[in-house]
Nucleic acid binder design. Sequence first.
DNA 1: AAGCCAGATGCGAGTCATTTGCATCTGAGA
DNA 2: TCTCAGATGCAAATGACTCGCATCTGGCTT
Lengths: 147, 147
Amino acid sequence: MTDHDHRTEKLTDALRQAGVRITRQRAALLSVLADAEDHPEATELHRRAEEVVPGISLSTVYRTLTELEMQGVILRHQFEGTPARFEHTETHHHDHMIDVETGEVVEFANERIERLQAEIADAMGYEIVHHRLELYVRKKRSPAPQG
Amino acid sequence: MTDHDHRTEKLTDALRQAGVRITRQRAALLSVLADAEDHPEATELHRRAEEVVPGISLSTVYRTLTELEMQGVILRHQFEGTPARFEHTETHHHDHMIDVETGEVVEFANERIERLQAEIADAMGYEIVHHRLELYVRKKRSPAPQG
DNA sequence: AAGCCAGATGCGAGTCATTTGCATCTGAGA
DNA sequence: TCTCAGATGCAAATGACTCGCATCTGGCTT
C-alpha cells in the first residue's frame, strides 16, 4: 500500500467517523484534491474527477467541496476576478501572492504578519476567526531601465 | 459654495479632463459616494442615487462604478459572502476587519504590515500591484469565562 | 449475505450579482 | 446651436453556484 493510499484511508475513516458517507464521487474528489499541486477551481476539479468517475455531476462537485470545506479538509479561496479555488488543508497555513499577469498563485507564510494581525484585532476588541491576505503582484523587471 | 461642492467640482473637472463625461447619473453617484460613511454595495448605491436622479438604472450604476474604479476614484472590495462594496479613495489606505456576526466593516491601517508585505514580495522577485488584507473577526467576550 | 433508509446523486431549473446588446438620448467641444 | 461619441435604460444574457426532486446507494443492522 502506498503512502498516498495510507493517508487517503486515514482521511476517509475520519470523515466516515464524522458522519460523512464516502461515495465513489467523494473518494474521487478527495484523491484529485490530494494530488493537486495547484489551486484548481470547481470546474477543473470536475474535469479531473470525471476521469475517475465518469458522469459525476458538477453539482455533486460543488456539494462535496462545500462539505469538505465544512469538515476542514479543504480551503476555499476567493481571489479577485476568478471563480473560487480550492486546496487541501494538509499543508501549513500560508497566504497567497497572485501574479496579475499570469494568474499564477504562489504561497508564502510570515509569522510576523500573523502576529501583527492578531495584535491589531486584539487591540480593537476583536478576535480573528480567519483572515485573508492576498498580494496581487507582477514580476519585477530586472533593475535595468525598462523596455 | 460649500466644501463639499468645492471638492466635487475639482473631482468632476479632473474626470472630464480624463475624458469621462459627467452626466446627471454620474454626478449623483459621485455625490452619493462622497457622502457615504459606510461601505455600500451596488444596489444600495442605486437606491441612494435614485433619490437624486429618479429612474437611474442599475446597469448605469454598475457601469459607472466600473468607470470610477478605473479612474482611481473609488475602490471595490469583494468581501466574503456579500456583493462587492465600494468606497471613495479620498481617505488614506487602510485594510478591513469584518465582523462575521454583524457584517460590520471596521477600517484599520498598519505601516509595519505594509512594509512586511513589500519585503516578502520583493524577496520573491515580485512587486505588489495591490493587496487585500481582511480580518474576519468576532467581538471578544470579556476576559471572564464564556457562557 | 440481504435489507433498509438517511443521506447522496444527477438532472434541470432557479438564483444572484453583474454584464451586455441595442435603440435612443445627451454632454460638451466645435 | 449643432453634432456625435459616448452614456443611458431596458431586457436579455452570463457565470458561478445552489436547489428541488425523483432515483440511487453506502454502510449500519440483522
